Structures are given as C-alpha cells and as structure tokens.
Simulated scan of single mutants.
Amino acid sequence: MYSRKIPEDLDCGIVVTMKILGGKWKACILDGINKGIKRPSELHRAIHDASPRVINMQLHELEQAGIIVKKIYQGLPLKVEYSLTDLGISLLPVIAIIDKWGIENNHLVENLREQIVG
C-alpha cells in the first residue's frame, strides 16, 4: 500500500480545496453539472478539450470526495446521472470567483502567452 512520504497539511484551507478541485477539468465538470448537464455523454460534449477517460476519472474522484452523487437508472440502455451534493453546492461560489477572474484577466494572460511565444 502506498503511503505519502510528506504528509498533507489538511489544516491549510488551500490544500484542502486544491485536493478537491485539483484536476484540469473538475471545476468545469462541477459548473456543467450545476448548469443542468447530468449525463457523462453530455459532459463529454460540453468539455470537448478533455478526453472522455479523463472526465470519467475526475467524475469518479469527485464522487469519492462526496462532491457529486451518481444515480444509476435501471433498464436498457443503462442511464447514469450526476448531481451535486450539499458539499458540492458549497464549492459553487469558489468556482464562480475563479470564472470571474479568468474572464476579467483573459486578455492579460493571452498577452503574456504571446510575449513568451513571440
């Protein structure tokens, strides 16, 4: 069994938050679920830059963390839907602030990227 050589500092709020949101697409997944996208195939279409495998892995991690809940409907074809838990809903203001910052500073980030590449 794997054990960390350096223990995580779970007394640090940033570490705890990044443990949940750390992952390239997790905030986008939570935002999508909040906007009514419930099924994995819908998330795959909405987040087209991410591979389905990565989205499925991050959905599983969010479910394990108690941020989302998975509901499986009986019948054929099998239907799966995700929804936010109360803990997941409590992350929405954090995601909104991240989104707002990105929108407000997109041009600055793009300018820096052009300076580095150009």
Rank of each mutant, 00 (worst) to 15 (best):
Y2M: 02
Y2W: 04
S3A: 10
R4S: 10
P7E: 09
E8N: 05
L10V: 10
L10H: 07
L10N: 09
D11H: 13
C12D: 14
C12H: 13
G13S: 15
V16L: 14
T17P: 07
T17H: 08
K19C: 07
I20G: 15
G22W: 09
G22H: 05
K24N: 10
W25D: 04
W25C: 09
K26G: 00
K26V: 00
K26P: 01
K26A: 02
A27H: 12
A27W: 08
C28A: 14
I29M: 07
L30K: 00
D31Q: 14
D31W: 09
D31T: 04
D31V: 04
G32A: 01
I33Y: 02
N34E: 12
G36M: 09
I37V: 09
R39A: 15
P40S: 08
S41A: 13
S41M: 12
E42S: 15
E42D: 15
L43R: 00
L43E: 15
I47T: 01
I47L: 12
H48A: 09
S51T: 08
S51H: 07
S51Q: 11
R53G: 00
V54M: 14
V54C: 04
I55A: 01
N56E: 10
N56S: 14
M57F: 06
M57R: 14
Q58F: 08
L59A: 06
L59R: 07
H60E: 14
E61I: 08
L62K: 04
E63N: 11
E63Y: 00
A65I: 01
G66Q: 04
G66W: 02
I67W: 02
I68D: 00
V69Q: 05
K71A: 09
K71I: 11
Y73I: 12
Q74A: 13
L76W: 03
L76T: 12
L76Q: 04
L76Y: 13
P77Y: 07
L78G: 01
L78S: 03
K79G: 06
V80E: 09
V80Q: 08
V80T: 15
V80K: 10
E81H: 10
E81N: 10
S83R: 03
S83G: 08
L84K: 09
L84E: 02
L84I: 03
T85N: 03
T85L: 04
G88I: 03
G88P: 01
I89D: 06
I89Q: 08
I89T: 14
L91K: 11
L91N: 02
L92W: 05
V94N: 03
I95C: 06
I95K: 12
I95H: 03
I97Q: 06
I97T: 13
I97D: 05
I98F: 05
D99N: 07
I103F: 11
N105M: 14
N106I: 12
N106M: 13
H107N: 10
L108E: 15
L108R: 14
L108Y: 11
L108S: 14
L108I: 07
V109E: 02
V109Q: 05
N111E: 12
N111G: 11
L112Q: 07
R113M: 12
Q115A: 10
Q115S: 14
I116K: 04
V117E: 13
G118F: 09
G118I: 11
